[in-house]
């Protein structure tokens, strides 16, 4: 298992794909946090919860999104390029491969989340300070933001691996994850509110709640519920991978 984990960590490091993902994540965090930090009207970001949600909290969504893409690419890339064949020839116990990918991607994903939160904290504070606004977040809030974003992104990386293993098609998986996180949850569950209160228990919302963005859901509970989603996705990917033929 350790051997397979080391192999998967090398795979994640040895192409430029994940460096590209990381830079895109940094760029988007900078852009979104600065945009909101400078443009949201003063009366809407004078409170702690609004500052967290509208400025700093973007790190949770973006960190989760890019961690999920990292996870999805790590397995769908193997199917796309055919490396799944040598991978399974060397490790025919396929469950080990999926498990190692989950752990490796969770490690990279958590780094994505923590760094996104750190960048959001830095530029968000700078933006608010330059506008002469008082920052209402205290040390505990920042710590929770870093930890919550790290945990949420790690769990979303596991979801990405699980979905990727289940779906196998790279394009379908990537489009599916983007559509879900950026549109489906946001529109149907949040803004339009078609399904009422259920929305806060959806995985994207839980990712935000993990850093304290939902007053009705404690971060610990949010992390626990998101971990259930991650476990379910990873298990589904594990079972599908163990049973299906490789072309």
């Amino acid at each position: 298992m350790t051997a397979q984990l080391r192999a998967e960590l090398l795979k994640l490091r040895s192409t430029q794909t994940n460096l590209g993902l990381f830079l895109a994540l940094l760029g988007l965090v900078l852009f979104v946090v600065l945009l909101h930090g400078f443009s949201v009207p003063v009366e809407r970001i004078s409170h702690r919860s609004n500052q967290l949600k509208l400025v700093f909290g973007w790190a949770a969504l973006l960190g989760s999104l890019f961690a999920a893409l990292l996870g999805a690419l790590s397995i769908t890339g193997e199917f796309r390029h055919g490396t799944i064949r040598p991978t399974f020839l060397v490790t025919p116990r396929r469950g080990r491969v999926v498990a190692a990918k989950v752990w490796a991607c969770m490690l990279f994903g958590s780094a994505f989340g923590v760094i996104a939160a750190a960048v959001a904290t830095g530029v968000g504070s700078a933006a608010l300070t330059m506008r002469g606004l008082e920052i209402r977040l205290d040390g505990g809030d920042y710590a929770l933001l870093l930890a919550g974003c790290g945990v949420a992104a790690a769990l979303w990386a596991a979801i990405g691996v699980g979905l990727g293993a289940l779906v196998r098609s790279q394009v379908t998986t990537v489009v599916g994850i983007c559509a879900w996180l950026l549109f489906v949850e946001g529109l149907l569950l949040g803004d339009v509110g078609l399904v009422g209160d259920v929305g806060r228990f959806m995985p994207g919302a839980l990712g935000k709640a993990a850093s304290g963005q939902d007053p009705l859901l404690t971060p610990g509970l949010a992390m626990f519920l998101l971990a259930l989603y991650a476990a379910a996705a990873a298990a589904a990917g594990w079972v599908a991978t163990a049973r299906r033929d490789v072309a």
Binding site: A3, A7, K11, T83, V90, T91
Partner: peptide
């Protein structure tokens, strides 16, 4: 590519 396979094996 070979190093990753060697690690796994």
């Amino acid at each position: 590519h070979l190093r990753a396979l060697a690690l796994a094996a």
